[in-house]
Simulated assay, not measured.
Amino acid sequence: MIETRKAISEKAVLIGIITQTQDEEKSEEYLDELEFLTATAGGTAVKRFVQKLEKPNPKTFLGSGKLDDVKAYINVHDIGTAIFDDELSPAQLRNIEKVLDCKILDRTNLILDIFAKRAQTSSAKTQVELAQYQYLLPRLTRLWTHLDKQKGGIGMRGPGETEIETDRRIIRDKITLLKKKLTTIDKQMAVQRKNRGKMVRVALVGYTNVGKSTLMNVISKSDVFAENKLFATLDTTVRKVVIKNIPFLMTDTVGFIRKLPTQLVESFKSTLDEVREADLLLHVVDITHPNFEDHIASVHKILSEIDSANKPTIMVFNKIDGYTHQIIEEDDLLTEKTKAHYTLEDWKKTWMNDLRQNSVFISALDKRNLEEFKDVVYDAVKSIHIQRFPYNDFLYHE
């Protein structure tokens, strides 16, 4: 496996842009998330740099003047790392590194690093390793420019092969081997899924850090790793759950995130197959996050990419124990009511009202409204079960 860097212990600056498609508010939110990613990887974000641009500079991402500002700050404050909120091209990485003369990471590299740190099983490690090599391959010129010269000497005359070409070939061979290994793992996991019988399959999906693993632990009375960090769960966990008189399988899956590296979506195919083959999705949402609607949209986007957007879905609005809202005083006639002022009851009267029986508000941590949650899940699983086994409905006579 590619040697994982030690957890970033040095200070870092975060760098983002404001464009026509990414306004100031969205840019700030992305940088908040990037700061959380940085903390999860073990670093400390000490400063943010943001520039308004029509589009990223194809050579240096930022304009030259802004990049000089970043360089000056890095030099004065002895900063070891600059982290960019978008994936940088090989040329951008090379050019930026020449100017800033420090470690340069982009969002993709940072996420891959966290995944490598979190991977526990052979399956997860193989999937992350493949994604790392796919990311690394086009960026070899940056890493090996000092070796990009023709070899000479005995036995190496003629056209020869440059060091970088050798490394490219080695990495391509490694990618081929990893893909073969993953194909074997995929087949093994497919057999495991087949061997689980015909029980209804329920998959927990949602943005990262919304409480899926905590909910899994409460419902299945199991001990799935859960903590307040991004991507706490990488390995798929399957547990048998019984609600009233119906047994079914519940799967906890890797959390989604905006700008999720395409390499990870591809390499985590076998993990995402658990979602593809599920009969029912429980889309868990952190209702306390100010931009939870964007998170829902991001999850829907990824579900569409893996052909799972049209599955029966129950929206589970979690963390109601921590939900707060701004209060408008009765004599305040100037303040316009916005979503920041919505109570939970206000939210339920919005588009959420159209969900009708397909939503529930809970706190997995405080175990609030769990009985209502179980009733909603029971009804959905029972409906699927009856369709699958129409002659076994005597099971449901209570």
Rank of each mutant, 00 (worst) to 15 (best):
V299E: 05
M315C: 02
K269H: 11
V284K: 12
N209P: 01
M216T: 01
D252G: 08
T313W: 13
A309H: 08
N310S: 15
L280G: 01
N245Y: 10
P290G: 06
V241I: 09
R239I: 05
D286L: 13
P247Y: 12
V284L: 13
D235V: 10
I243A: 08
D223F: 08
V238A: 11
K229L: 15
E227Q: 15
K259N: 14
V275Y: 01
V284S: 07
F256P: 04
D286M: 14
L280A: 02
S304K: 15
A278W: 03
F231I: 12
I306G: 12
R201A: 06
T251K: 04
V210K: 02
L234S: 09
L260W: 02
K240T: 10
L303P: 01
L204G: 00
F225V: 14
P312W: 14
H295T: 02
K244T: 07
H289E: 11
F268S: 10
S222Y: 03
V285G: 01
T214W: 08
R239A: 08
L272E: 06
K221N: 15
F248K: 06
L264K: 07
S304P: 00
N228I: 08
P247W: 13
S304M: 13
T253C: 09
D307A: 15
D307V: 09
V265L: 14
R239L: 07
S267I: 12
S220P: 04
A226R: 13
P261D: 05
K212H: 02
S308T: 05
L272I: 06
V238D: 00
V265R: 05
M315N: 06
H295K: 12
L215S: 02
V265M: 11
A297E: 14
V205H: 02
A278H: 02
M216K: 05
A226Q: 12
A309P: 00
L230E: 10
V210R: 01
R239F: 06
I219L: 15
N310E: 15
V210W: 00
L303F: 08
A232C: 11
M216F: 13
E266N: 05
P312S: 14
T233A: 14
I302A: 04
V275T: 08
G211M: 09
T253Y: 07
F268P: 06
L282K: 05
V285T: 05
L230P: 04
D279Q: 10
E227D: 13
V299Y: 06
L260P: 00
T237Q: 11
D294W: 04
V316N: 10
K229D: 05
K311I: 10
M250D: 01
K221T: 10
N217L: 10
S270D: 03
L215G: 02
V275C: 02
S308A: 15
K229G: 04
S213K: 11
T208A: 08
I314R: 12
S222H: 07
E227L: 07
N217P: 02
K244Y: 15
R276S: 05
D286Q: 12
I246G: 00
L260F: 09
V241P: 01
D279F: 13
R201C: 03
R276W: 00
V285R: 03
T214F: 09
A309D: 12
N217S: 04
F256K: 06
T288Q: 06
V265T: 03
K229H: 09
I287T: 07
M315R: 08
F248L: 09
K240P: 03
F292K: 09
I257S: 04
A297R: 14
L264N: 07
